[in-house]
């Protein structure tokens, strides 16, 4: 189902949750709403579901205005962060709920319900657990039941609010891979909310980055990561270092150098330079060009790259992730003075 969100505004007393938000989702897409807490992503999801109403603006589902539509008529499947399973019902009854509450005329027979529920339970690999109660299941299993329950009513749109937020890291990774595969199989238009950029990048077709009730950028994971629209998006998508820089009249960006007093001050416009830790180049001898001088404070060799924390004169901390072989060749130790330079950088004015 195609979704068209138009100029939505939502205010909670003196807090602006959504400030003129517009978004288009194509049918069959898997979209991630990514942002820190308080960015409005959950409110947007709840408004699309019909659990919350916008102060102004509208939501169109398949081109139809939803303003006067009941939650029921939207045919939306919703998965909550804390599962919201009915704890007094068995797994089977939880999944069957949406079918059992239908008006008599369109309610399927018990045999059909049974078939359908068992089919869904085997889809989430939990058919053996049909007579258990939610309290007897692990978090990951509960979330899969919640998903099966949402799918039972054959929604045209699936909304997931931080679906993996309450799970531990390993289960979370497993489940999001599984969700991606599931989406590839059934192609239901899906929107999920997350504050985990890795999760958004790995699962979604397109990522919507939000902050302070506004959409900062919409794009494929690659677009958003490679070409962040602004400093916020860059910041949110990973660790980074920030340097001050100067853009001269020819448009060339120089590192603002307060380390060596010998070089001539460069005239130009001050800019912010951003660089990821793995984009830092280091050396132990001063070479040609602009370098920043810093002292090695801490090294963490666990993992494929060595994580180094360096302190610049003036106290700024710089994070660098360097290949193990380079560290070995340069024979880097704590307390060494190194010269570094961002190899790739993003400049925001």
């Amino acid at each position: 189902m195609a979704i068209h969100v138009k100029n939505i505004k939502k205010q909670f007393s003196d807090f602006t949750a959504l400030d003129d938000v517009s978004l288009e989702v194509k049918s069959g897409e898997l979209i991630a709403l990514l942002g820190p807490s308080g960015s409005g992503k959950t409110t947007l999801l709840r408004i699309i579901a019909g659990l919350e109403f916008p102060d102004s603006g509208s939501v169109l589902l398949n081109g139809e205005e939803t303003q006067d539509k009941d939650i029921k008529e939207r045919h939306v499947g919703f998965v909550f962060q804390h599962y919201a399973l009915f704890k007094h019902m068995t797994v089977f009854e939880n999944v069957a709920f949406g079918l059992r509450v239908r008006p008599k005329k369109i309610r399927p027979s018990n045999i059909v319900i049974r078939e359908k529920v068992m089919e869904l339970l085997s889809l989430v690999h939990l058919d053996a657990f049909h007579d258990r109660y939610p309290s007897q299941l692990s978090g990951g299993q509960r979330q899969r039941i919640a998903l099966a329950r949402a799918l039972a009513v054959e929604p045209r749109l699936l909304l997931l609010d931080e679906p993996f937020g309450a799970l531990d890291a390993k289960v979370r990774k497993e489940l999001r891979r599984w969700m991606r595969r599931l989406h590839d199989d059934i192609h239901i238009t899906s929107i999920f909310v997350t504050h985990d950029q890795e999760e958004a990048m790995e699962v979604a077709d397109r990522v919507v980055v939000m902050s302070n009730g506004k959409i900062e950028q919409v794009g494929t994971p690659e677009e958003v990561y490679q070409h962040p629209a602004n400093a916020f998006v860059y910041d949110f998508l990973g660790n980074y270092n920030e340097f001050s820089g100067i853009k001269d009249s020819a448009g060339i960006v120089h590192l603002a150098d307060f380390d060596s007093k010998q070089s001539k001050p460069i005239e130009g416009k001050p800019v912010k330079i951003f660089s990821r830790p793995h984009e830092i180049y280091i050396t132990n001898k001063k070479e040609e060009g602009e370098f920043i001088e810093a002292v090695v404070e801490h090294m963490n060799p666990a993992g494929p790259l060595v994580k180094i924390e360096l302190e610049r004169k003036g106290g700024q901390l710089i994070q660098a992730e360097i290949l193990k072989t380079i560290i070995k060749n340069l024979d880097v130790k704590n307390g060494d003075v190194l010269f570094l330079r961002p190899e790739t950088m993003k400049v925001f004015e």
Binding site: L51, I71, G77, A84, L85, F86, H88, G98, V101, R149
Partner: peptide, 25 residues
């Protein structure tokens, strides 16, 4: 209110939600 919201989203009426979800809880 999450369980009630879940019930409404699954198509239950307010009355059904009250009797099948709220009261048992």
């Amino acid at each position: 209110t999450e369980q009630e919201e879940a019930a409404l989203l699954l198509g239950a009426s307010g009355w059904q939600t009250f009797w099948k979800v709220t009261i048992p809880n």
